[in-house]
Amino acid sequence: MSGIALPVGLISEGKRRRRWPVLVVFAIAWLSLMLGIALLADVIAPYAYTALDLRNRLAPPGATMLHPLGTDELGRDVLSRLIFSIRMSLLIAFGATIIGALIGTSLGVLAAHFRGLVEQVVLALVDFSASLPFLILALAVLAFFGNSLTLFICLLGLHAWERYARIARGLVISAGAQGYAAAVRQLGASPWRVYGRHVLPNIASTLIVSMTLAFPEIILLESGLSFLGLGVQPPETSLGSMVGYGREYLTRAPWILLSPAAVIVLTTFSVSVLGDWLRDRLDPTLS
């Protein structure tokens, strides 16, 4: 799967004059809101996400002042669950994105540094990841290992690692071939210095842009797996598992799934917009 990026034209073209395109402002505002909610979940959630209110089951939004977004089958407050789900989904997406970037970049740098056998092994691993849709691979691992939050995050962290590996390898090789890296190496610098002080800072912007492209994909994967009941396990809740749970009540109480679904869509949309905008500004070479 190639990077999923928004069309450049949608965001920047025709709006060149303005420094901050409307969509970008919206994306930043929305993501800040999501981050704020995730950080302050304990404070702002009106109820615990497991708290039952058996007198108000399946209450539609606005029906009682107690539950502005309604309640589910067990009378749990949808708003509170939504807040905690946002926290969970963001935690997973951040964790997994960082893990993927770390693993992928390290392997890519190793491949470029040692070349030869190491590089062939890394490339074979890249082939391997490309040979399986990640969803299938993830499902297989979950079947074999069972599920826990840590495992789940690490598993999603494997998503897109090969993209970082490929990018890092290419950039390191080209940096090392003619340019500044070769120059610093022949000054007598150790590999640590060459990579740590020169190469990584130079390729960081490209890698960060790749992270903003992988982040929404991970949110989608997480919610997809959780929707299937194979991701985040009850009593924990995430955006995807809320949708999966709400699906049972699609006819009677669609509000249970509509609000988490909207949050998923808006969040992935915002990160994509932001990533695309960053890419335009930081790294015109990344297509």
């Binding site: 003619q178 500044y180 120059a183 130079n202």
Partner: peptide
């Protein structure tokens, strides 16, 4: 190539 030999950052 002096530009290539220097770290632009």
């Amino acid at each position: 190539d002096p530009l290539g030999a220097l770290d632009r950052r």
